[in-house]
Design a protein around this nucleic acid. Structure first.
Length: 608
DNA sequence: GTAGGGTTAG
């Protein structure tokens, strides 16, 4: 096919006038290696001319029926269209561009628009530029999206509601929903009324950033304005509710949607199924699966992957495997998500041989691993204390062209800590920026935890102080980790000082923070202080949980405070909390050395 | 011909 052809490398930055933005320039530059348009210099022009109409009809059919499954096929169609004389209309090109966007080849789509303009002389119209804006937004380059909006004006093209909705979505994709809302307000004032899509974009953006309740308000707002929310808006909100653990509310909204005559689709069911899976509500999952199949919908690969992953997360590997079996019977091919769920559970169970077997199986079956799979395996080998294997995989993924991201580095840092090498972890922490990755708050938390557990408390404190000085937004988690370190080192005064300073930092003390502080007091035998804090929790609306009570009872038992232990064991029993293994062991130990103690005997084995 | 919803890792 390449015979008699010349390769033309595309450069989108020329069209978009982005040369002043090195990051995009670099990105598109590196992409050019893979994207070269092949144009003919001879052969089948005549044939194409005569068959042109038939070819275009065929091309439209392929695009509309979703039969263009990969980028190479789409590119081939594009090349054929570029060889036609006269060129097909801009409409035909945008139809194909839409397919390329759906295949998520955003950079390529931008390059192709540029090629259409500079090499083929096809002027872009509003719709073509909407596609370019969407691609830039998907690449989280919204400011370039606005540059294209400027280009649109310069060309005398009027943006549409769709253009602006795409930009609103761009803000949402970047996680900047407040800006999205501002733009939506602005849009209305400019005489562009929001439509169902705009509302859908906003509602989804809000759900994705965890503002589900605000999303619900928007849903109600659109109803007040006489817009009928459709299945996409409802499903977005249901997904948000499920992800917040509000499955009951999601199911209510599902009934409400049905009541209003809006039919659920596969995505709606998938959101609910996942919500129920997260709480192990398998029976209801089964009911929903039955219901959807009765409505003629079969679960697809994504839905089944959710089942596989949920079973894996519960450690039910057998069930996960049977879902995979069902998947294959259904004609679906397990993908990188499916395999990763299995690999991950084996890694967590320290069954690295099995994890590697799955990995080799997927690779030999032609399923390309991704950065997530490599990160899971690196985590597994680290847990297994086999740093060499972890480093080997890091190298392997590099050879395959994957650049470790912040999650990979965090995993590795945590892994080195778990393997008892906190100083090596620190080295990675301070050098990861050389590999183009900047630690985030979670990386910092893992590092602080590693330093604390590795008895480098002063370094952990210094790291947190350095983060405070650099105005990083530190959260309660990182302070709770540090508090645990300070308590474990027995420095109760310093711990209490830190604990007391947290509200002034604007942080909400949570159940973990309280429990760690209580444990710290218990460890020093300061039981009254621990008890005061336990009482204080309830007053502050943070109810103690299983772990809090067990920690306190263990403190009491250590000091042989039997009467008080029984008091709290009774509270636990009355409130449905269970005594954990460590507490049980202490009770048994106490009994075996204090056989004559009737108090605890009476509590454990009351006479009827 | 273009815009919105569902799956994995620390």
């Amino acid at each position: 096919m390449l015979f008699g052809c010349k390769r033309v490398t595309l450069n989108a930055s020329r069209f978009l006038n982005l040369s002043s933005f090195p990051c995009l320039h670099h990105m598109i530059g590196s992409f050019s290696h893979t994207l070269s348009i092949v144009t003919t210099t001879n052969t089948d022009d005549v044939e194409m001319h005569t068959n042109g109409t038939r070819f275009l009809i065929f091309m439209r059919y392929l695009c509309r029926s979703g039969q263009v499954k990969n980028f190479d096929e789409a590119l081939d169609l594009f090349q054929r269209m570029g060889r036609m004389k006269p060129f097909p209309s801009v409409k035909d090109f945008t139809l194909l561009l839409g397919v390329i966007v759906r295949l998520r080849h955003y950079t390529a789509a931008i390059s192709l628009v540029k090629h259409m303009y500079s090499s083929l002389g096809i002027e872009p119209d509003t719709i073509t530029l909407n596609i370019v804006i969407n691609c830039l937004c998907r690449l989280k380059l919204i400011s370039f999206g606005f540059s294209v909006l400027g280009t649109m004006f310069k060309l005398g093209l009027e943006p549409t509601v769709m253009t602006l909705t795409t930009l609103i979505n761009g803000f949402c994709v970047q996680g900047d929903v407040s800006q999205a809302v501002v733009l939506a307000d602005h849009m209305e004032k400019m005489g562009y009324p929001l439509d169902v899509y705009t509302y859908g974009v906003l509602v989804n953006g809000l759900c994705k950033t965890g503002d589900t309740l605000v999303a619900v308000r928007w849903l109600r707002k659109m109803e007040e304005r006489n817009w009928k929310p459709n299945v996409v808006v409802y499903s977005s909100v249901m997904d948000g509710l499920c992800k917040d653990g509000l499955v009951y509310e999601a199911l209510n909204l599902f009934s409400e949607m049905n009541g209003k005559g809006v039919l659920p689709n596969l995505v709606t069911y998938t959101c609910l199924i996942q919500g129920l899976c997260n709480f192990g509500r398998w029976k209801e999952v089964g009911c929903l699966l039955d219901e959807m199949t009765k409505m003629g919908m079969m679960p697809d690969l994504q839905t089944l992957n959710i089942l596989v992953d949920s079973f894996c997360k519960e450690g039910k590997v057998m069930q996960a495997k049977s879902v995979i079996g069902f998947m294959i019977i259904m004609g679906e091919v397990p993908d990188v998500f499916t395999y990763n769920s299995l690999i991950h559970v084996y890694c967590l169970q320290n069954q690295m041989n099995k994890a590697m077997r799955v990995f080799n199986f997927m690779v030999s079956g032609g399923c390309l691993p991704d950065i997530v799979v490599f990160t899971s395996l690196i985590h597994g080998w680290c847990k297994n204390k086999n740093i060499n294997k972890a480093m080997y995989l890091l190298e392997e993924m590099g050879k395959m062209g994957f650049v470790p991201d912040v999650v990979t580095w965090t995993t590795l840092i945590g892994g080195f800590c778990e393997a008892g090498r906190p100083l090596a972890a620190k080295e990675l922490f301070f050098n990861m920026h050389k590999h183009g990755q900047v630690p985030n708050i979670q990386t910092c938390s893992v590092m602080v935890d590693g330093l604390c557990k590795g008895n480098f408390l002063s370094e952990a404190v210094a790291l947190v102080e350095a983060m405070e000085k650099s105005n990083l937004d530190l959260n309660i988690v990182i302070y709770t980790i540090l508090l645990d370190g300070i308590c474990s080192a027995g420095k109760l005064n310093a711990a209490w000082e830190l604990f007391s300073s947290l509200p002034a930092k604007g942080l909400q003390i949570n159940i973990y923070t309280y429990t760690i502080m209580i444990k710290g007091f218990c460890k020093q035998g300061l039981l009254d202080k621990a008890e005061d804090l336990l009482m204080n929790m309830e007053e502050n609306g943070c109810l103690p949980n299983n772990c809090t009570y067990n920690v306190f009872v263990q403190g009491l038992l250590t000091k042989k405070e039997i009467a008080r232990s029984i008091k709290y064991l009774t509270i636990m029993r009355d409130n449905g909390f269970s005594v954990d293994a460590a507490t049980t062991k202490m009770i048994i130990n106490y009994l075996s050395t204090n056989k004559g103690d009737s108090e605890i005997q009476e509590f454990l084995f009351p006479k009827r």
